[in-house]
Amino acid sequence: HLFVEIHPTDAIFQVIKAFKGRSSNYLRKEFPELKKLPSLWTSSYFFSTAGNVAADTIERYINDPHHG
């Protein structure tokens, strides 16, 4: 899970692309054997808005090992 706050005018696909690209670069630097793979991530993703739920409620859900 990633719990991020973005500006309403930011395109979600661009935020996801940035996360995937940056993490791929870091992982490939740390683990050179990953350079053999054409891609580390699929093109799919899921997002949802928090609405009127408090941030600490979402964080507790993410950190709870029994929810998934």
Rank of each mutant, 00 (worst) to 15 (best):
L2V: 08
F3V: 07
V4D: 05
V4K: 11
I6H: 09
I6Q: 00
I6C: 08
P8N: 10
P8F: 11
P8S: 10
T9S: 12
A11G: 09
I12R: 07
F13Q: 05
F13C: 04
V15N: 05
V15S: 01
I16N: 01
A18R: 15
A18D: 13
A18W: 13
F19I: 13
F19L: 13
F19C: 01
F19G: 01
K20T: 02
K20M: 03
G21N: 11
R22G: 09
R22M: 05
S24K: 11
R28K: 15
K29Q: 14
E30F: 03
F31E: 10
F31L: 07
P32C: 08
P32W: 09
K36I: 06
L37Q: 15
P38T: 01
P38I: 09
S39C: 06
S43M: 10
S43K: 15
S43A: 04
S43C: 06
S44L: 11
S44E: 13
S44K: 13
S44I: 05
Y45W: 10
F46N: 00
S48T: 13
T49K: 13
A50G: 04
A50Y: 14
A50Q: 11
N52L: 15
N52Y: 10
A54F: 12
A54E: 14
A55Y: 05
D56V: 03
Y61N: 00
Y61W: 02
Y61V: 00
Y61D: 00
I62C: 09
N63E: 02
N63V: 00
P65M: 02
P65E: 12
P65N: 00
H66L: 11
H67F: 03
G68D: 02
G68V: 06
